Computed example of a mutant assay.
Amino acid sequence: MNVRQARIAGIPLATDLAPLVEIAPQLVLVLGSVKPLTAPGLLEILEEVFPQAGLAGCTTAGEIGTGAVTDSEIVITALHFQPVEVAACGDGSGGHGGFPGGRPAPGPGAGRAGAGPRARAGPGRADQWQRPH
């Protein structure tokens, strides 16, 4: 897994996020105070800069990131998961939940981050993001 993080005051520019983009993240977590996290344009820039990543975010009572604690910024954490091949094996008896004959686990992309619908700021509370209906 590769992880990069940025602390930003205000709306980030694409250049602010370039080091995070370099790892081609599949998941981007955005945590911050209410004011910067709910600022108009934040979600749009994140969707533009990270078009293939799943986005998730929520407000906090303080942000911990890159060696400091703040209470007026957003912390953006980009995660890139390395490919892993998973196979389940059994003894052929079918007992104890084994897979007869060592049948392989589900195919590529199963459970992959970013595979579902994008998170969006919802019409409900301003301090949470929701998936579109």
Rank of each mutant, 00 (worst) to 15 (best):
T66F: 00
L27M: 07
Q5K: 08
I64C: 10
G111P: 08
S72D: 15
L55Q: 06
A68K: 12
G90F: 02
P108W: 04
P51F: 02
P106R: 13
I76G: 05
P117F: 00
R131L: 15
G94T: 08
G90K: 07
G57L: 01
E22R: 12
P123A: 15
L55T: 05
A53Q: 05
P51K: 03
W129Q: 08
A56V: 04
F81Y: 12
G65C: 07
L37Q: 03
G10R: 04
R4Q: 13
E47D: 13
H96E: 11
I11E: 04
E48Q: 12
A110K: 10
L20N: 06
G90R: 08
H80F: 05
G10M: 04
G62S: 12
F99C: 09
R120F: 02
G32S: 04
Q52I: 00
I8G: 12
G102L: 04
E63G: 02
P117K: 13
S33A: 15
S93K: 14
A56W: 03
G95A: 15
G95T: 12
I11G: 03
V86S: 13
E63R: 03
C58H: 09
G94H: 12
T70H: 13
P12I: 01
N2S: 13
G101K: 06
R131N: 07
P36F: 00
G102R: 06
A6R: 14
V28M: 04
A119F: 06
K35R: 09
A121I: 06
L43F: 00
V49G: 04
L43Q: 14
I11M: 05
F99E: 12
T77G: 04
N2E: 14
D127S: 14
S33T: 07
V49R: 05
V28F: 02
I74V: 14
G10N: 07
V86W: 06
I64H: 08
V75T: 11
Q128A: 15
L79D: 01
G95I: 02
L13D: 11
P132N: 12
E22T: 07
I8S: 11
P12C: 07
E22C: 01
G41I: 01
G101V: 03
D71F: 00
A53V: 01
A39F: 00
P123H: 10
A18I: 00
G107E: 11
A9L: 10
A88E: 15
V3E: 09
V86H: 09
Q130F: 01
G102S: 12
M1P: 11
I8L: 10
I11R: 12
K35A: 13
L27G: 01
G92T: 05
G41E: 08
L17N: 06
L42C: 02
S33L: 03
A39Q: 15
G111C: 06
P25S: 04
R118K: 15
G111K: 09
D91K: 09
V3F: 01
F99D: 09
